[in-house]
């Protein structure tokens, strides 16, 4: 197995110093958040499932921070700082939040994107690129040496953020 490729599952996150790639596949209504410190060349990628952890607190189960927008992003930022990143350099690229099933009334994807943008704003992190919404799934790759993010789809080509 190639040590330079880290796979992030659903409700999961990973941080890494250059070189290498962090990848998460099959973002539907989920949102992928890439944070990057271009000075120290440290990146992080999170794959969140839901927007808000608040409604799930106090149910007697511990919360997986990587599952929710409002908890995953601050947690990932701290993990990046622990390996030497500095918050003032952080920039973000986001992808996902689509609506695969067109007739559903509530769009989980939309709510997820809103929550991610709100959380990043609260943390003072600028969004440098986004590919969100639509009705198709995405795979997201963060290249930790450059901060480049590559989005691939089924039948809709590739896009660089």
């Amino acid at each position: 197995m190639d040590n330079d490729i880290i796979k992030v599952k659903i409700a999961d996150l990973a941080v890494k110093r250059e070189p290498g790639i962090i990848v998460t596949i099959g973002l539907g209504s989920c949102v992928g958040i890439a944070l990057y410190d271009p000075v120290n060349r440290i990146g992080g990628l999170a794959h969140i499932l839901l927007s808000d952890s608040a409604q799930f607190r106090g149910r007697g189960t511990s919360i997986n921070k990587a599952k929710f927008a409002d908890t995953a992003i601050p947690f990932m930022a701290r993990e990046m700082e622990r390996i030497g990143a500095r918050r003032q350099h952080f920039l973000a690229k986001i992808a996902g939040g689509s609506k695969l099933f067109p007739n559903n009334n509530i769009s989980v994807g939309e709510k997820n994107v809103e929550a991610v943008i709100r959380t990043l704003k609260e943390m003072g992190i600028a969004i440098r690129g986004q590919d969100v919404g639509g009705n198709y799934g995405r795979t997201m790759r963060l290249f930790v040496d450059s901060g480049k993010v590559l989005i691939s789809t089924v039948g809709k080509g590739e896009k660089e953020l």
Partner: peptide
């Protein structure tokens, strides 16, 4: 019923998130 043709991971995770 609703149909989606896409990455299996995206389809299953979206169904879970819903």
């Amino acid at each position: 019923p609703q149909l989606a043709v896409d990455m299996s991971g995206a389809i299953i995770s979206t169904a879970m998130a819903e």
